[in-house]
Each structure stands twice: as C-alpha cells, then as structure tokens.
Write a protein that binds this DNA or RNA. Structure first.
Lengths: 341, 341
DNA sequence: CTGTTAGCGCGTTCAC
DNA sequence: GTGAACGCGCTAACAG
C-alpha cells in the first residue's frame, strides 16, 4: 500500500505563495477574494486532486454527515427494504448510514446506540426491539441534542417524531376482506401484548368483526411470543383440533401464516375453501407459497425514505421542534389463500 | 437531564487544577501519573459523565473506527445475511459499519465508494456490481492506503484479499446429486458470462457431467442477464417446449428456480418425478415453495464475519501485506424438488 | 510525577 | 484583497 501524503490547504498555500486562509476562502469563492486568485487556487487544487479532510471539517463543525440506523433484525425482508429506502434518501442528501441490529435484545440495542452516540453520528433512525420500553439509552441521544426518529416499531414513551404504518387500518381491511369473502369464524394469531404494532393490528381485527356484527371468540385469539413459523403451526393445530375451529385465520405476519399453512396442508384442509388465510408484511415468501398468500403490503421503501427525510430535516434545522407522526397507508394484496368466492 | 454541553479535558483540568495533558494521561492510567491523581481524575470524570470527543480523537489519529460495506442489493436474503455477520464481527471489535448499495449499477457503486472514501471510513468491504470490471474507484481506496476486502462477487483485477464461496464445488455437488438421483438430461440456467460466480458454477456443472460421462448439451444451457424469476420461467418454457427437453434443471439461484417451478406447475409437470429442480443460495423462499427446493447453502453470516475479520486485521496491522483468499465451503440442502428416488 | 508547548486541518475572526 | 492568529479537543514530545 502506497502511503500517499494528502494535500492540505497549507501545501497549496506554500506552493502558491498564499496564506492558508486565502486558499480556504478561494476554494469556496468567498466574495472578498480576487477572481484571479480564486481561479488560480481552484485550478491548482483541481490539478493536484485536493480533497478536503472531512475528519478535520467534521471535528471543527462537530458533525459527521453520518446517521445511525438500528433495526431489530437485518435479515428480514421488511426491514431491509426500509433500510434500502433510508440509504437511498440519505445518500441523496449527502449522508451515509451506519447500520446496526438489536436482535430484539435490549442490551444489544443499548450497545449499538451507545456505539453510535459517541459522536460518530448526527442523528438516529430506530425501530425498537421487543424488549425496549422506556428507552433510557435513547434519551441520551435527545439529551445530547441529537435528532431521533422512530419508525415501524415505536414507543410513545419517547418524545420523537415517528413514521409508522397504519397497522390498525391494514388489519381492519384484511379482516373485512375475509368477512366479505364469506368467512364467519375468523381467528387471529396475534403478536405480543407489549408491542404497539401487534396491538394496533389486534384492534383493527376486533373493530372489523364488530362492524360486521360478528362475535369475538376468545379461543380464536392466540398470542405469539417470538413470531415464528412454529408458533403459527402450533396455534393453528390447537385451534383446528379444538372445538368450534375457525374458518379463516388472520396472522400477525407472513411467516406465522406460513406455519399455519403448513399445518393445514399436512392435514389436507383446503385453502381457501375450508380455511381462509391472510398474512401481514408482504414478504417475498408470501408470493411463493402455494396457494399464494393474501397479505398486507407496508411500503417499506417509502417508510425508509420518509424517516430519513424527517431526520435530515431535523438535523438541518436544529431550531425547529418536530413532533410529527407520519402514518403510511397499507395496501391489501389479495391472492389465492383468501379468495373463497 | 445531563449537562447540555460536553465536558472536555480542559474543563476537568480547570476543576481539578491540573493540566490538560495530566488529565489525559490520568484517564488512561499512564504509568507516569501518581495513583492518587489517577483516582481523583477518574472519579471526577465518572461523576460528571465525561465522554471523550471521538471526533477530535479520530481527527488527530486520522481514522474513524468505521468501515464501509457495499453490496449490489440490500434487499436480498444472502447479502443481508452477510451484512449481519459483518456487523456482528465489526461491533465486537469496536467498529461501526456504513452500508451502501450499488443496485448492480457501476455509477452508483462509484458514488457510494467515493462518499465513503472521503475519510469517513477506515476500510472497505465490497461485493462488486455486475457492471464492475476494472474498479478504478476501488483503486483509489488502495492508493490512499486504505484496506479493501472483496467478498462473494469479486474481481481478480483488484489486488485485495477476498472471501468467496466455493461456487465450483457447490455446483459440482448439486449436479452430482441430481445425477445420483437418476436424472440424465440436466439443464443449467446459468448467470452472466462476465460474472465470476456464475462461471464457477457453470464449470462445476460441466465437471459433474463430465465426471459422470454425461453429454453436455448446448441447448440445455441458458444464460440469464438479470437473474430474475421471469427469466427462469421463460428459459424453462423454451427448453420444455423445444425438442429433447431436460429431465432436471440446475438454476443459478433460487429465484430463477422459482420461475422454473412456476412454469412446470402451470403445465402440470411433476416435480421431482418428471423434472428435478435445484437452486442456489438457500433463500428463505426455497423452504416455502412446494415442493420444497433443493439448494446450496452459502453460509452468508460466516462470510460476513470472515470478511470483517480480515479487513480489521489489515487495518490494525498496516504493515502486513495480505493477499489471502478465503474459500468457504458450501452445503447441499436436499429437499423434495430433487428426490426422485 | 506534572506542566508547557506544539501541532493535527480547517474556518473564522480581526487586523493591515 | 489578503494574512496572521486563534481555537475546536486531544495527544505526544519535551521540559522541569
């Protein structure tokens, strides 16, 4: 590796017999500087491939042009889509993105956020872990005067703007669609009780049933803990083998629906004829299952873009107090698994 | 609420009537400093939540404790798995990871790498785009004396260490497995001719046929350009409708195999009885298809870990010249789509 | 043992 | 128009 000495303002000054400050000003075409000087300096800089030392600039201005992004899981279709959107927007505005994951473990999230807080980041985009409730480590960010935007999995305990999906509405539409298709005994394999998204979807489910004057049956509501295929399989088995089994299942997410589908197929129960199935999130898997899974698309890319925009706005206008909550509409994607008619 | 302004060494010095340098040394328990002083300073720093200004440190030491990571696509099961591994290892060693994507477009890759080069990164992990051949923008990294490690999609034009999968071996095993199952006319929907991975897999395919004394049939070898489901569908259609159709298809990747499967199912061609199918990469979709897809697992997480380790080794021992190439073995995952017997 | 001094590269006074 | 000087926070060489 060749150690190429980097050109500095001082070097240029020496070469051109100018002072450092003149060179500095010339490069940004300061009005005080003579046009000839400006041209001269710019030409020299160009020819010798002068690159300003970002480290020095950042140090002086106390900012890094980096923003942090923490998600529960990186290997996850929805989250990677969000990240993709955030990176796209950030890059457009001249920022880079530092990515970390919490694995849904509070300790890991704290470690990641502290690692970023130590001045390597101007602001933070975060989707909190299942274990995060208060978020002391995130308050540290705010205390330092750094911008934070929450997205998707959020907590109201933290006074920051957020970008979320209209989970209530998405669930409501999904369940209403099932009802419209003629299903009457609709089960819900839901998420954790302490997670906002899961609750919103649950509420949407309940509301849809109520609006259609369908009874709410407690034994058809099952709570996942880890949100896995296995849970989907297990709960479906329990319900189908119990009495008064459901004729449709609305699952908190596509993987869970896959577990449910697996059980139904094993038992030769026809989808959608005997049991209808709807997932949530529009993972790539939902298109690949057979029958293809009806699901709720969350526009992850757009969420990433919006979250990044919001954060960068805040960073650039420190004075403004943002408290905005952007709610993105979902889109029901109807496929074979729920089309009885 | 903590103090709004950050505590500096100078502040501590003033408060304790010590010089800045003494404080600095005390905090790192320099042997020259009296134990009492060390204790005193440390206690004060602790109580007042002193956090060293990383920006200043980095500026002075000319490094950032960040490493860059560029992949063709972020929303991609394999790559996100690699990233996950790289982040895990980097964090362990006190580094953060800056992520960007090229979308398989050379221009985007150049932009991303330049954005990172500008002193926001100590080294780079990259999986090059389909369009990258020479990699002038990557040479700039090397010229600046920054470490670069290539992984998965690499070019030999660039003298850097790499971490790759044994694509040849993986393909060889996959095709040998098909042969063992009794398939005789094995097609290959391959990747681009100018991409190394694709060629290695192709070679493995050829070698397996040769070793089994099976003929190589040109009309059963089809080259994808964009590596999509549509191409898989189209090529399979062409081959199945042409004369001397294949009785098995080895696909460059799982999505392509999904396209192939889609066509076969539409036409009522039985998998694996009439046509066997094998993919590559072990995406989550491969488990969800029905029949489940036989595929080649690439140990993405491990690849990320190895690549990060290599890069950090280089960063930490600037003097050592690394030219290592780590080749990770693959693992054939046999599922229903290829089990004729 | 501890303090003084001298930068790192840049931008921003304030003089001339 | 331009230059000199200072400081951002920290480290390291050199004194004492």
């Amino acid at each position: 590796m060749t150690d190429k000495k980097k050109l500095t303002l001082k070097d240029i000054g020496k070469a051109l017999n100018l002072s450092v400050s003149t060179v500095s000003r010339a490069l940004k075409a300061h009005p005080d500087i003579a046009q000839e000087t400006i041209d001269l300096v710019k030409k020299y800089a160009e020819e010798h491939h002068y690159v300003p030392n970002l480290l020095a600039i950042n140090f002086r201005k106390n900012r890094t042009f980096n923003i942090g992004l923490i998600v529960p899981e990186l290997v996850h279709h929805f989250f990677s889509t969000v990240i993709s959107g955030a990176i796209s927007e950030a890059n457009k505005q001249g920022y880079n993105i530092l990515v970390s994951q919490s694995n849904d473990i509070l300790k890991d999230e704290e470690k990641a956020s502290r690692a970023m807080l130590n001045s390597s980041v101007d602001g933070l985009l975060i989707s909190i872990s299942n274990e995060t409730t208060v978020g002391e480590h995130l308050k540290e960010f705010l205390d330092e005067g750094k911008a934070v935007v929450q997205f998707d999995k959020v907590t109201e305990q933290l006074p920051t703007p957020m970008v979320i999906v209209d989970d209530f509405d998405g669930a409501y539409n999904a369940v209403s669609h099932l009802i419209e298709q003629g299903y009457q005994r609709i089960a819900h394999i839901r998420g954790r009780i302490d997670v906002k998204n899961a609750c919103d979807r649950y509420e949407g489910y309940i509301k849809a049933l109520e609006d259609a004057s369908l009874p709410i049956l407690d034994h058809l509501i099952k709570p996942c803990i880890a949100i896995t295929e296995e849970e989907g399989y297990q709960f479906t088995k329990e319900m189908m083998e119990g009495k008064n089994p459901p004729d449709a299942i609305f699952c908190i997410t596509d993987v869970v629906a896959f577990g449910a589908m697996k059980y139904l197929k094993e038992k030769g129960i026809a989808i959608p004829e005997e049991v209808g199935l709807v997932g949530f999130s529009n993972w790539m898997v939902s298109r690949v299952m057979s029958p293809q899974l009806t699901t709720v698309n969350q526009h992850g890319f757009q969420m990433g873009v919006e979250a990044a925009k919001l954060l960068l706005d805040m960073i650039k206008n420190q004075d403004i107090a943002y408290q905005e909550t952007k709610i993105l509409k979902t889109e029901l994607i109807v496929r074979a698994s729920s089309q009885k008619k």
